[in-house]
Structure formats: structure tokens, C-alpha cells
């Protein structure tokens, strides 16, 4: 893993909120293993200003990581007019779930709508593929 490359890129702290997307949900009904499901799931939607700060463009790949795990996804704009600096959105999917902490404070409810993570450019890297989820561990 060329980790040094990621460390050299600007890092940006975000709180990730997961959400439902009807197009992604519909594709999941057909196949969870399809390219289309990956395309609609492996994305982080950010504030336009935050994307600039990261030094990436929409469609570029970014690594999103925290103590729980790491995924490479595409960067997209949230499209919201109101600024939401530091808040990013990911469709609820195996990709966002890699970033969820095992610590629920004993409540049994993971923080699906408040994941603390760090984003940095992964230019040239491929999005984490479905095969990754079938490995025995994704902890890095």
C-alpha cells in the first residue's frame, strides 16, 4: 500500500451522514454485486468549498478513513446551495459501513449519521471494489 502518497495529500476532517438514495436502493434489488451498485454507493458527497480544499475535482477518488477502516470512493458535490462545511454525505452502503465504529456505548445502535473520518485525495487509485467486502477483514 502506497500510504505515503496519501499522507502527502491534504487531509480534511469530516462528519459523515449516511442517507438513502432511491436509485441506489433500486439497483440493489437487482444486484448488490453490480458495477452500477458500486457506482451509486461508493461516493462521498461534499460541500463545494471542501472539495476545493482537498485539491480534488468531482469524480476523482478519495480515501476516507478512521480507526474503524478505510475505503476509497469517488468525490461528488452534494449540490446543496447552503454551505455545509465539514459535513459530508454517503449513501447507506457497505462502503459507508466500513467507517462505522464498533463502539456504540452499549446501545446497540451504530452512529450511522455521525461518522467522524478524514478524507484525502486518492488520485489515480481505484474505488474499493465489491471483492474487498468478501475478504475476511477490511481493517487496516
Amino acid at each position: 500500500m502506497e500510504f505515503g502518497k496519501f499522507l502527502a495529500a491534504p487531509e480534511y476532517k469530516v462528519t459523515i451522514v449516511t442517507y438513502r438514495d432511491i436509485f441506489q436502493s433500486a439497483v440493489m434489488e437487482g444486484s448488490r454485486f453490480s458495477e452500477e451498485y458500486l457506482k451509486l454507493s461508493a461516493v462521498i458527497r461534499m460541500d463545494a468549498g471542501d472539495i476545493k480544499k482537498l485539491g480534488v475535482k468531482e469524480g476523482d477518488t478519495a480515501v476516507v478513513r478512521n480507526d474503524s477502516g478505510k475505503v476509497i470512493v469517488r468525490v461528488g458535490s452534494s449540490g446543496y446551495d447552503a454551505s455545509h462545511q465539514g459535513i459530508a454525505y454517503m449513501p447507506n452502503s457497505p462502503w459507508s459501513n466500513v467507517l462505522l465504529s464498533a463502539d456504540t456505548g452499549g446501545s446497540g445502535v451504530p452512529r450511522y449519521k455521525g461518522i467522524e473520518a478524514v478524507v484525502s485525495s486518492a488520485k489515480g487509485e481505484s474505488v474499493t471494489g465489491v471483492d474487498g467486502f468478501l475478504e475476511n477483514t477490511m481493517k487496516h
Partner: peptide, 30 residues
Amino acid sequence: IVETLNNKAADAALVIGSDPLSSLPRVIAE
């Protein structure tokens, strides 16, 4: 399910019409 798997308290699982490996935190579902 989250704490049961977190505490490694289950020694077998019957999953009906659901995909916990996809919908739960990965570190727990492992």
C-alpha cells in the same frame, strides 16, 4: 445483533431475508 456480534457472543447465526455483512458496521459484522 450489534452487541451480540461485538461481544462475540454468538457461535452460529441464522439470517433470514437480510444482509448484515452489508448493513452493519463492518468491524462488527466481521
